[in-house]
Design a protein around this nucleic acid. Structure first.
Length: 967
DNA sequence: CTACGGTCCTAA
DNA sequence: TGAGTTAGGACCGTAG
């Protein structure tokens, strides 16, 4: 044993005595997946539930006996006596496709009274055939044979359409057995048995076999909303990078792996250790495990992970950097057992273990990709870890609310969550859901929301904002919009339905829906459940004092809100599983009417004629909000009127539609549709924040210079109310820019490379192509963000000809086209901000002394900047020196050589210090300016600063070398 | 020179 | 196989 550190006991609590005949077992499942029962002759599908008990024992529960199935409408005149004949006929057809040696493929055919959710047809249940199969493969073949008409029964094609045939086995199981994501499962006595040793396949403490119809699935309510004591491993690696080079697994050893294991709900980690290569000074409250061979260290770490047996593994960017690095490194060192760590012994997976959370970040794919969980470092630790645990809890709550398994939240989209809920609602009322056959081109676009024409300008008076809360969900509830309530003219006549009393006509092409009194829609019920649950969660949150319970509740209310909002998107997803334009287009049509009506109501009520001090004016509005200038000059009045207006307008609409007063902007800068900034007040004492929408500060396709300048100017204007200070600042930056005083990291622009085939030439696309020619390996690929700077080029050259890789620019001393940055990046955003405030005077920003620079940049040779030669200049007086001479000073400055050497020496030292500092910072990008960024992606200002610093060190050292020739 | 389409990214 | 929606500003290149 190389390790000199003491090993603690890390294992889980020992297993209590459990007698399956007498005792029940309850556990919280944290993941559900499917597998094939290796001990069944028929290779039956089987469910696996991973989880842990309240005591913290890990559980793997196999659930047997659940068979996949789907429905078809029973053929005309089908009687229960026909079942046997139908069954053997379909069995025969299946046997023909899948020779199974006589083994049964179609397990069961049953007649069930069901109703399609598609359209209102007078609440009539009809006979459907429920077809259960021995496995999913067979199910899919049967589905195809029925859908394409190749299966016939009594010489007639059967159905064509199938119902619920595209629901995945795992989700089908969960829905039927009322299992939701991450809920508690109870196995009553006599309903389960422990696996025999030979049946075990995991490191879990309890491996159990249960049946699908003999367990209790507890809804996550009351006591069952608790969270089991998850063991959470967080780790962080350090590589011994060669000086100035980003670590590569083939070269650079892992020198340290720091780990913490925390039990969910406990304050402090119960394991803190560091695996180090070679010796390491003791660290407070941390076990130091020293190894003298890297392979041994990696192997020991792997064993540690197996032993600590975490339920969840988190770390800063583990999925993108740390884990791949460790695995590559282990491969390089031939640590063969390495990639096998995790819960399942032997079962090798190419991807990482199921319980590894690669992504705990809400937002778009981009922010998701650069997930930062935390760094196991310094003082950041407790808060960062806490944040990520909260994140984990939010996900658990999302899984519970929507009913999907945990992993779906990371790997699947929004639709599956709605589908899960829809199925759960549908099954209660014996509805069946048609499987969408072909994705043919029915994608007629539909009209979206209204954006009120803005009265652009700078408002130095309070602007009150009124918002409809959950607009689209509330519209669907108020008008009972659903698949099950949509009714056509023919059905209206058949069933003798009366307009207004039985059904309503929506503003979208006269789509009609029956009212809730005739039939309550499924979607409105889902939304009601979600929103009332949210109300409850928010109320409980108010009362709760325990921070963990608060976190659970907050995660819950957030999950409920997001879920409610995605229902509309689901009905409008033309390429999705169940698009319904009548619903989605009616929702937006109502929304358009409502925002217009709100504007009218506010402007006609709050008038001087009605006794108010001023006439109110709606100066802007988007989708579900209106910005109102009541004309008052103070926050208190603006808020009071906002409250009054919200209540007044709410009264004009159907329940549960509600207009709310939320905030006042003061001052408010309205630049354009979807572009504004303002100081945000929810009480009249203190502003909450500077709110910025759509403008350059929040856009990723701008360089940092533009983001920072605009941000600073907005703060100076809106918070400090210092317009002249903002102007002076902007002028200073422009002057700095033109004098090349701006660090290149501020000038890097990044844009996503989203297609492989572009019609128009663009800077990032052209650069990616050029980089591919230079070095296909390191060039950006589809989906990457391409970083570039604009360099000097021939006069009139297009931007796409002047884009260049920032690294290349640094390494080759290529001059930046600063005037491009002024004219094409900075000037328009600055003018847009200052024009509403300064009027025509804003133009002076872009002309004047600060824009006149003595140009002493190197002249360029033609357009081929790559070959530009930097003429060496004298260190003392900057006079150009003769080419090819290995000198640093001209003859006049020779006497000052000693002094200049000292100066150069300190420059080198300075650069080295700076480089070292940036290197530390860059290793994990902590504290990067705006977000957690992936260092290895070229989308990180610190990374460029570090690159630049590295080059500075090299250049300065080279100059220092040259002194050798001087004496 | 203007108009317009392609592209990116954001608001809601 | 698996994918929420539309509105809209801003920039750039190119056709006319």
């Amino acid at each position: 044993m190389e390790s000199t550190g003491k090993r603690q006991i890390w294992t889980r609590p020992s297993i209590p005595y459990i007698n399956p005949e007498e005792h029940s077992i309850a556990f919280q499942q944290i993941e559900v997946d499917e597998c094939i029962d290796p001990y069944s002759a028929s290779r039956s599908p089987m469910i696996r539930m991973f989880g842990l008990t309240e005591a913290g024992n890990s559980v793997l529960c196999y659930v047997k006996g659940f068979l996949p199935y789907f429905y078809i409408p029973a053929p005309n005149g089908f009687k229960s006596g026909d079942i046997a004949e139908f069954k053997s006929s379909l069995e025969l057809a299946l046997q023909h496709e899948i020779p199974s040696g006589g083994r049964e493929l179609l397990n069961k055919v049953e007649v069930k009274l069901k109703e399609t959710i598609q359209g209102y047809h007078g609440k009539q249940k009809c006979p459907f055939l429920k077809l259960s199969f021995v496995d999913t493969k067979t199910l899919n073949i049967a589905k195809r044979m029925i859908e394409d008409g190749s299966f016939t029964y009594k010489s007639r094609e059967v159905g064509g359409i199938t119902f619920e045939s595209n629901l995945k086995y795992v989700l089908r199981f969960m829905i039927d057995c009322k299992v939701t994501g991450a809920n508690w499962i109870e196995l009553p006595p006599k309903s389960y048995r422990f696996c025999a040793e030979y049946e075990r396949s995991s490191h879990c403490q309890l491996e159990i076999i249960a049946r699908h119809d003999q367990f209790i699935s507890h809804p996550p309510e009351g006591d069952w909303s608790k969270i089991a004591p998850l063991r959470i491993l967080s780790f962080d690696i350090e590589c011994a990078g060669r000086k100035g080079i980003f670590p590569e697994a083939a070269q650079d050893p892992v020198i340290q792996i720091a780990n913490m294991v925390t039990i969910q709900g406990e304050k402090n980690p119960f394991i803190r250790n560091v695996f180090t290569l070679n010796s390491c000074a003791p660290i407070v409250a941390t076990d130091v495990l020293e190894y003298y061979d890297e392979g041994n260290m990696l192997q020991a770490w792997c064993d540690f992970v197996v032993e600590a047996d975490p339920d969840v593994i988190i770390g800063y960017n583990i999925a993108n950097f740390d884990l791949p690095y460790l695995i590559d490194r282990a491969t390089h060192l031939k640590v063969t057992r390495f990639p096998y760590f995790g819960r399942m012994k032997g079962e090798q997976k190419e991807d990482v273990h199921h319980s590894i959370i690669t992504d705990l970040h809400n937002g778009n794919p981009e922010t998701r990709r650069r997930l930062a969980i935390y760094c196991l470092k310094d003082a950041y630790l407790p808060q960062r870890l806490m944040d990520k645990l909260m994140c984990l809890i939010n996900y658990l709550e999302m899984a519970r609310v929507t009913g999907v398994p945990f992993s779906y939240l990371l790997s699947r989209g929004q639709q599956i969550k709605v589908i899960s809920q829809l199925y759960r609602k549908a099954i209660e009322q014996d509805f069946v859901i048609p499987a969408r056959k072909n994705v043919e081109g029915m994608d007629e676009p539909f009209e979206g929301a209204t954006v009120i024409d803005p009265e652009k300008g700078f408002y130095n008076v309070p602007i009150t904002t009124l918002d409809f809360s959950s607009l689209y969900p509330s519209i669907m509830m108020a008008h009972n919009l659903c698949y099950t309530t949509l009714v056509d003219q023919r059905e209206i006549e058949n069933l003798n339905l009366k307009n207004d009393s039985d059904y309503i006509v929506t503003p979208y092409q006269s789509a009609r829906f029956v009212k809730a009194e005739v039939r309550k829609g499924l979607l409105p019920s889902i939304l009601e459940d979600l929103l009332s649950a949210r109300k409850k969660a928010k109320a409980d949150l108010k009362k709760e004092t325990d921070p963990f319970k608060r976190a659970v509740l907050d995660g819950r209310q957030l999950a409920l809100k997001i879920s409610a909002n995605s229902v509309y998107g689901f009905t409008g997803a033309s390429a999705g599983q169940m698009p319904c334009l009548e619903i989605s287009a009616s929702v937006t049509a109502y929304g358009r009417q409502m925002i217009e009506q709100t504007k009218r109501e506010v402007e006609s009520r709050f008038t001087m004629e009605n006794g108010y001090k001023h006439d109110a004016q709606v100066i802007y509005g988007d989708t579900d909000s209106v910005m109102v200038k009541f004309g008052v000059d103070n926050l208190v009045d603006a808020m009071k009127l906002g409250q009054e207006a919200a209540e007044y307008v709410t009264g004009k609409f159907l329940r549960p539609i509600k207009l709310e007063f939320e905030k006042v902007y003061f001052p408010y800068l309205l630049i354009n549709k979807k572009r504004y900034a303002g100081l945000y007040w929810t009480n009249s004492e203190k502003w909450d924040k500077l709110d910025t929408k759509g403008i350059e500060t929040v856009r990723r396709d701008n360089c940092l210079l533009v983001q920072n300048v605009i941000e600073t100017c907005l703060r100076k204007v809106l918070i400090d109310r210092d317009v002249s200070g903002a102007v002076a600042y902007a002028k200073k930056i422009i002057s700095d820019l033109l004098q090349n005083k701006i660090d290149m990291s501020q000038l890097v622009i990044t844009k996503a490379l989203s297609k492989s085939d572009y019609s128009a030439k663009q800077p990032h696309v052209e650069l990616a192509e050029r980089m591919r020619k230079r070095d296909p390996g390191s060039a950006p690929t589809l989906g990457d963000r391409v970083a570039y700077v604009i360099i000097k080029g021939t006069k009139g050259a297009a931007a796409y000809e002047k884009s260049e890789d920032p690294i290349y620019v640094l390494e080759n001393n290529i001059p930046i086209d600063t005037s491009y940055y002024l004219e094409n990046q900075l000037s328009k955003p600055l003018l847009r901000i200052f024009e509403p405030i300064l009027g025509d005077k804003a133009e002076s920003l872009l002309s004047g002394d600060h824009t006149r620079v003595v140009q002493h940049t190197t002249p360029t040779i033609g357009g081929l900047m790559k070959f530009a030669v930097i003429v060496p200049t004298c260190l003392g007086c900057k006079v150009p020196l003769t080419k090819n001479a290995d000198t640093v000073v001209c003859r006049h400055c020779k006497p000052k050589l000693g002094e200049l050497y000292q100066k150069q020496l300190s420059t080198v030292n300075e650069f080295e210090t700076r480089f070292a500092r940036l290197w530390t910072q860059c290793q994990r990008c902590q504290g990067s300016l705006h977000q957690d960024v992936l260092c290895s992606s070229r989308d990180c200002p610190i990374w460029y600063m570090r690159k630049k610093a590295q080059k500075d060190v090299q250049d300065a050292s080279a100059v220092l070398e040259k002194f050798n020739y001087e004496w």
